[in-house]
């Protein structure tokens, strides 16, 4: 790869390498599926434990949060090593989700301290990074997932308040798991082309 080039060959090298760099986009479906399954399950377990009068029913949320954080960190480190490249898009998405997580935890602490049910607020907040990620990736199912989080979050505050954990689980299924599965199919397709 060291010989003299004609202008046409130069343009061909530039074009080929820019296409190569574009194809190295990070795979994101793992995070949506992992967090989606953990929190959909957390909502169900929380509802059942609450119905049975168990006072520490809320412990399922931080437990799932810890499992998700460990799973995401291990997977992220492994993917970073395998990929060997960091794009601007990767960095924007990474910091968007880190900032979201910080706000999420602070918001839950404040809401619980004030005696409010955090589920509708969590759904509304979760819609934001989901929608932005969908816009950044130009992936419509995630954009729709973000919109659904907003709609379900808003309605869950007024409809069936005693079932907010179950509604939360349903919101996670339509906002994370279904778009995550579609994203997996999309990203698997990109990998094989």
């Amino acid at each position: 790869m060291d010989q003299e080039m004609t202008p046409a060959q130069s343009m061909e090298v530039i074009h080929r390498m820019i296409v190569e760099a574009k194809q190295s986009a990070q795979r994101s479906n793992y995070y949506f599926l992992l967090w989606g399954m953990l929190f959909a399950l957390a909502g169900l377990v929380d509802h059942v434990l609450h119905q049975q009068g168990i006072t520490l029913h809320w412990l399922v949320w931080p437990a799932m949060g810890i499992i998700g954080t460990v799973g995401s960190s291990v997977h992220g480190a492994r993917e970073g090593r395998r990929q060997g490249v960091m794009t601007m898009m990767d960095r924007v998405q990474m910091w968007l989700w880190i900032a979201f997580t910080v706000v999420l935890v602070l918001m839950i602490v404040l809401l619980v301290a004030k005696g409010l049910d955090p589920n509708p607020f969590v759904l509304v907040l979760t819609g934001m990074p989901t929608f932005i990620t969908g816009m950044l990736m130009r992936f419509r199912p995630l954009m729709i997932g973000g919109l659904l989080f907003w709609v379900i979050g808003l309605t869950s505050a007024f409809v069936l308040p005693g079932y907010s954990s179950l509604i939360f689980s349903a919101g996670i299924v339509v906002g994370y798991i279904i778009p995550g599965l579609m994203l997996k199919r999309h990203e698997d397709g990109l990998r094989t082309t």
């Binding site: 060959q9 080929r16 390498m17 820019i18 960091m86 794009t87 601007m88």
Partner: peptide
């Protein structure tokens, strides 16, 4: 070719 290829790759990534 190689130096141009490297720089073209790096243009698209951080």
């Amino acid at each position: 070719q190689l130096r141009l290829a490297v720089v073209s790759l790096l243009v698209g990534v951080e």
